[in-house]
């Protein structure tokens, strides 16, 4: 495990490199894209575990915090999704440089999966494989789900406070998120770019959503051959666990991803 900073002086990004622990005939590398907002903090542990599992199977893995999130520079209020897509590209370039490879696997969870899909759809030659783990398929649907998750969490942690009071103060999910960023998220539409996904794409779902029927149809119509939408029964690491489940890892989903990338 090697923590590091990369990016530019204006946009300094924090990342952790888990170097390959096993030798493989060909160097392999993967970039992990975190979720957003309250989902980020809870997903961190599962994605660290995924990273180490892949490192044990011969991958150099880089996971990183987007600008204005986690340990990276910047404030939440400055964030736009076009900047986060640039951050993913910077992470890909950094990892290619470190690993001396021409292409990487791109793995994303929730909003991170949506951003990874958008990068992969931009015809980059250096995305060899794409893993979309419970992606935000439709922006408005994702904002709605985040609102529900946040409301449940806020109500669980307070005896009488709801989210309405905070919303009136101009914050979302307890974070100083700008209206511009919310508009960016609302514009996400993976179905419209499903035909541009790489042929080597794994799409996992642990939680059914109304958008899944159209998403499945779009993936099956992929010009390079149908891409399946796999359902996996597992916990949702991006939401806060209760005392009974705290510390549990989504082993089925992680096992499927590692098995698919490194059979």
């Amino acid at each position: 495990m090697t923590p590091l900073y990369f990016g530019t002086g204006q946009r300094r990004l924090f990342g952790v490199l888990d170097p390959a622990q096993a030798r493989s005939s060909q160097a392999q590398a993967a970039v992990i894209c975190y979720p957003w907002g309250p989902e980020y903090i809870f997903a961190h542990r599962a994605l660290r575990y995924l990273s180490r599992q892949l490192a044990a199977r011969g991958f150099n893995v880089l996971r990183f915090d987007y600008y204005g999130s986690g340990d990276s520079a910047g404030n939440e209020s400055e964030v736009r999704l076009c900047g986060w897509r640039q951050d993913i590209v910077a992470a890909i370039e950094e990892l290619k440089d470190i690993s001396d490879v021409k292409a990487v696997a791109l793995i994303g969870l929730r909003l991170g999966a949506s951003l990874a899909a958008q990068i992969a759809a931009s015809c980059r030659k250096d995305v060899a494989a794409l893993v979309l783990w419970d992606p935000a398929i439709s922006g408005p649907e994702h904002l709605e789900v985040l609102e529900i998750e946040w409301t449940e969490m806020a109500q669980r942690h307070s005896t009488y406070l709801g989210h309405e009071r905070e919303r009136r103060r101009g914050a979302r999910y307890g974070l100083p998120i700008s209206e511009e960023l919310a508009i960016d998220v609302a514009a996400i539409d993976l179905i419209s770019i499903a035909d541009k996904m790489p042929s080597r794409t794994l799409c996992l779902s642990t939680k059914p959503l109304p958008s899944h029927a159209a998403w499945r149809a779009a993936l099956e119509a992929h010009p390079g051959g149908p891409i399946g939408l796999e359902s996996v029964s597992d916990i949702h690491p991006w939401v806060e666990a209760d005392l009974e489940t705290v510390g549990q890892l989504p082993l089925a989903a992680i096992g499927r991803i590692t098995g698919w990338l490194a059979p």
Partner: peptide, 13 residues
């Protein structure tokens, strides 16, 4: 708890 050093809502950063 088991939340990493960033803290809920990035509070410690």
């Amino acid at each position: 708890g088991i939340i990493h050093r960033v803290g809920h809502q990035r509070k410690f950063v």
